[in-house]
Design a protein around this nucleic acid. Sequence first.
RNA 1: GGUCCCAUCGUCUAGUGGUUAGGACGCUGGCCUCUCACGCCGGUAACAUGGGUUCGAAUCCCAUUGGGAUCACCA
Length: 471
Amino acid sequence: MEPPIKPIVTRFPPSPTGYLHIGGARTALFNWLYARKTKGRFVLRIEDTDAARSTSESVDAILESLEWLGIDWDEGPYFQTQRYHIYNEYIEKLIESGHAYYCSCTPEEVDAMREEAKAKGQKPMYNGKCRYLNLKKGDNTVVRLKTPDTGVTIVEDIVKGNTAFQNSEIDDFIVQRSDGSAMYNLAVVIDDITMGINTIIRGDDHLINTPKQMLIYSALSANMPVFGHVPMVLGSDKARLSKRHGAMSVGEYQKMGFLPDAMINYLVRLGWSHGDQEFFERAELIEKFDLEHLGRSASMFDTDKLMALNSKHIQKKSPGELADPLIYHLKELGIDAQNDTFTQGVIQTLQPRSKTLVEMADGAAFYYKDDVEYDKTAADKFLTPDILSVLKKSVERIETLEPYTHEALENVFKLIMEETGLKFGKLAQPLRVAITGTTVSPGIFEMLLVLGKEKTTSRIKKAIRFIQDKA
RNA sequence: GGUCCCAUCGUCUAGUGGUUAGGACGCUGGCCUCUCACGCCGGUAACAUGGGUUCGAAUCCCAUUGGGAUCACCA
């Protein structure tokens, strides 16, 4: 490995106007993976210059979701609202060098210009009225960038390829508002320059901003970063992901019982591929991720596929790794569990049959609730007098069982089967209802083993009483 | 509407001039089986359309159609 001459520096710049959503998480992930893969740096920057919509609750929610996903940052979070002085410095430079100018046109006047242009069948743009007036800073002046009237600006995009924009399509856009605050395009560029960002992976809704930003880089004689615009993530109706598509925030997926690793695995595959491979461990992703295999077309979010991946990740994890996340979901059900061998045993029995941690918690509840509640139809069907003798025999034999092992338990029932001539299926369901209250559960022996001798026998005894009382 | 982006099974995708167009999810038939699952075996289903270029196009070019983005003193 040759030492990198220029370490890759990427960034994720959310604006705190809501939760971290799926699309944002994916761009964060791409940037993070690329930085980690290249042993570069990943910078987090909060773009909070929209005072009306930005909230600190959103900042917290976004940071929390990133942490949950395991996306960590090397620098930041920086806040743009604390950097106005830097932007102003650069705006000064732009004016001094003749790349920008003060404009005293009111919003109404600009609107009129746009209407006029539209009426003439032209693109609505600012007409450059104040461009050569050499105005001084005034009470209501804005600063506009002097953009070239001719020529093209070519965006060399690493995922989309080269795209040429006619400079004549770009008007003298505002870089500083009349209240002295910097506009988005300027703030972004100044931040990226001063933070040393050299690789920008973002949603392709920004592709059209890119030539404007490139013009600022040029005006400042700054080094151009590498751009990569990834397609949007769409909802199931092919429309851009929005509120009406149901769950879209990362936090909601956490609540639904998805594993961060599954989330990351799914998100990265939405727009990136590594041959036929579908399942990726986190470390593997860092090793294999690249910019060359980013897709160019938009993709739809598919919860079923996420679910399938989640179930695979649940199966691959060790019970120890699953314990804390499961405990979180058990708590939602009012169950206090500990990360101990019991809970890990519980997990082991549920791993192959849980697509989410919520499912796992539901399936695990009976282990923790000693007062078994019988499902009505299950009890009617299986907790019947004809099974009494079998249940009694099992209690007797399990009570004296030493050692209490999977094999020993199996032998107990093998014997009962021989004595009664019943098939295992005939005994298993009543037993299952006695232990869990329902007809669906992990395998009988592994379940009894995890539950332990005491709880097993007391639950069967309870079922015996239940049948007797019913009679 | 102007500008820009995109186009392989229903969905996510592999594919970079010569493949029976592959995988995964979903759906589905079967096996396994103490329930539910897991797992295993099989099936279903795609190159948007029309022109070129080429001995040969999913792959290259153009047009059409369809989807999306963007046109602010929002980010």
